[in-house]
Design a protein around this nucleic acid. Sequence first.
RNA 1: GUGGCUAUGGUGUAAUGGCAGCACGGGAGACUGUGGCUCUCCUAGAGCGGGUUCAAAUCCCGUUAGCCACCCCA
Length: 413
Amino acid sequence: MFTRVRGTQDILPQDSFSWQEVEEGARRIFSLYGYQEIRTPILEKASLFNHSLGETTEIVQKQMFEIKHSKDHLVLRPEGTVPVVRAFLENNLNKTKDAGKFYYIGPMFRAERPQKGRLRQFHHIGAEAIGSISPYLDIEIISLSDRLLKEFGVKDYEIVLNSLGCSKDKAGFAEELRSRLKGRLAKLCPDCQKRYKRNVFRILDCKNAACKKIISSLSLTCDYLCSECRSHFESVTRGLESIGISCQLLPSLVRGLDYYTRTVFEIRHNRLGSQDALGAGGRYDNLVSRFAGGDTPAIGFAFGVERLLLARDHHCVPCARCLIYVIPLGQKAEEKCIQLLHSLRSNQIAADMDYSGRSLKAKMRQANEANAGFCVIIGENELAKGVVTLKNMACGEQEEVKQEELIEKIKNL
RNA sequence: GUGGCUAUGGUGUAAUGGCAGCACGGGAGACUGUGGCUCUCCUAGAGCGGGUUCAAAUCCCGUUAGCCACCCCA
């Protein structure tokens, strides 16, 4: 009864600094690249995802947390792209501008079996650039991902890249794949036999040895791409090379969500065990038009924040605060100290006070633990003289300071 | 969702059916008003529910949670 929901976690003060660091770093980089924050609700209509992620995807079939409330069929959002597209259209941003670049940071929900790097409530940092077909935007998105990882201090990641082609190419390739696999269907693993019907592309990244062998025997190439898609992809790879971003081309790279077209990429890290994708993204040139008609190509990506934190090797600690720790001895002193505390804080000086009523020694220990730069001690002696004792915790020196001069004194430290 | 492994003070761990021990942490104290180092003492434990047994942390069943692989995906 008094426990967390499975697959969720509390982020305690000792960890929240790392989160803040990642979030603040992300905001800085996004604004450097001209992306603006968009915040969409966590709660969305179930139909929004049912119609966009693909009816047969795992997420739609069994991973959404559903909320039924009177006649509404709602879900906790399982990903961020579709809500951003919804907000883009619902607020007529497609009519006021020809393109928009957005980023978002927030929780997503999927009812998967929890594992390291795989939670039921997890957090995405993502970006969406809506309204342009330019391959230079693909380059921008991938270099933005790369830049973010550098900002976060993640090392030893690998960017893998592929093009799925336009929807025609995808359909043609799916058909070709099915016909070439048909005769060997029985040799595929049971999962792949299901994938054959449901999402044939997924067979390409099966981990089963027998399936891998069959896949490699097909000797797949990018030949199924139409000339436009091929030249788009060539522009992307050439551009990435020109700005020094190394990617590995991986013809077997596919994505689990139906809306992806053309450029897709994934960023992998070996520290994450089985959940090795730090982030992924790609084009979704037909998703917007599916809701609103017209032709609005787009591209986006998202990182998993929990996975980013696993991949960073340093554990962040907030740098030592310049804190004044106020120690009263006795009740009269306490009354004096709350006034002092108030005026310290009013002067933008970080200050905390010991309310424990324990011995001075214990209070000093607390001051030490709070990482205080200075202690202010007020007891009977100080009250009688109208002074406070100011102690430098680093060197241990202390002096008496007149109460009315304390603020100025501390400001000048 | 499938298969498997694990579960001991706040944390990390030890004890192979027979007195639950250690380290860290937390508290008090070592010149009655001074922290960090050291020392002393104290503190606090078997996830939950059943079962087997004279006796269970230990064996069995269930459950919950975490982890591993698959699956999925960020």
